[in-house]
């Protein structure tokens, strides 16, 4: 590829190639301070290519290709090339990761213990983890939690946080401007802006944490907490995992171990301030 960028995020090395310079330049800025892949060798490759050769110049749109691809994938306009690269990296993890049970969850850490937050897109888990990451917690990741089947620990995967719509202003008020990527308007998910995690999240990206609490947040009329049993938690997490089936027995053992060892709750919250209060209170009361 004409243009390329390599980066390591926790235990995973990526190489992103692009037919155009713009997405690579944006990645270099966004990923300032991240290390290169170990021994220079990437685990996964993502390529941003024109759908047809002439589409490199004419109404350029980037098709995401890589080691693992999805049928029906649609190209994105070149102006959204950074998002295309991020989606491509997510897809490689979702389809290709074998060393960990991947949970679609955000994760923060304090005192070596991890708080996992899983839920549907739009439930606010990304915003919540980003805010906690600025308020005394270490961000382990906003998209995927990497559960180690052998040890039960969570490996950090501190990608830039994908802020959507209202969350952009919330976080812009919270962090230095140089940690925010470009505003990408009009994407399939609305406006998107990436946030580079705080310096300690990058510096300690090789330091795993032991799961201590599982939350399933969602917006609600008022703050509410409902303890969740091990079975319901297990079933919900199988639905939140991209590779539960692929991992087979190791996935079953990892997930049953997690839900038996860690308290889980569904929480409703009316706004992010209430959510932060709720999380802190539950953590103080519950996390062992």
């Amino acid at each position: 590829m004409r243009h390329a960028f390599s980066v390591r995020i926790g235990p995973v090395g990526f190489r992103v190639g692009s037919a155009w310079p713009q997405p690579i330049a944006a990645m270099r800025r966004l990923y300032a301070g991240y290390p290169p892949p170990r021994d220079g060798i990437a685990d996964f490759t993502v390529r941003l290519e024109p759908t047809r050769p002439w589409r490199r110049w004419l109404r350029p749109s980037a098709m995401v290709r890589g080691d693992f691809t999805l049928p029906d994938a649609a190209p994105l306009p070149l102006a959204q090339g950074l998002l295309a690269a991020e989606m491509g990296m997510n897809l490689q993890m979702a389809l290709g990761a074998r060393r960990w049970l991947l949970l679609h969850a955000s994760c923060v850490e304090r005192d070596g213990r991890a708080l996992l937050m899983s839920g549907h897109s739009g439930a606010g888990k990304s915003t919540l983890s980003a805010l906690l990451g600025e308020r005394g917690w270490r961000l382990l990741g906003d998209e995927f939690a990497l559960l180690d089947p052998a040890s039960g620990v969570i490996h950090p995967f501190p990608r830039p946080v994908s802020l959507k719509n209202e969350a952009i202003a919330v976080m812009a008020a919270e962090v230095a401007a140089d940690r925010l990527g470009p505003l990408i308007p009009g994407t399939p998910k609305g406006d998107i802006r990436h946030l580079r995690p705080a310096a300690d999240a990058l510096a300690r990206m090789d330091e795993p944490a032991t799961p201590a609490m599982l939350l399933f947040p969602r917006f609600g009329a008022s703050a509410d907490v409902r303890p969740m049993g091990a079975i319901e938690t297990f079933v919900r997490l199988t639905q939140a995992s991209t590779n539960y089936v692929v991992l087979g027995e190791a996935g079953f053992a990892a997930l049953t171990g997690l839900v038996r060892g860690v308290p889980a709750m569904a929480i409703d919250y009316p706004d992010t301030a209430a959510a932060i209060d709720l999380v802190e209170r539950l953590w103080a009361e519950t996390a062992r």
């Binding site: 091990a230 199988t238 539960y244 079953f252 049953t256």
Partner: peptide, 21 residues
């Protein structure tokens, strides 16, 4: 492989790789 919780059983069937409650 089975794990019991709350009066239910999580069961992993090795030949098929399928999990049942």
């Amino acid at each position: 492989l089975s794990v019991e919780a709350e009066g239910m059983t999580l069961l992993y069937h090795r030949p098929s790789g399928i999990t049942h409650v």
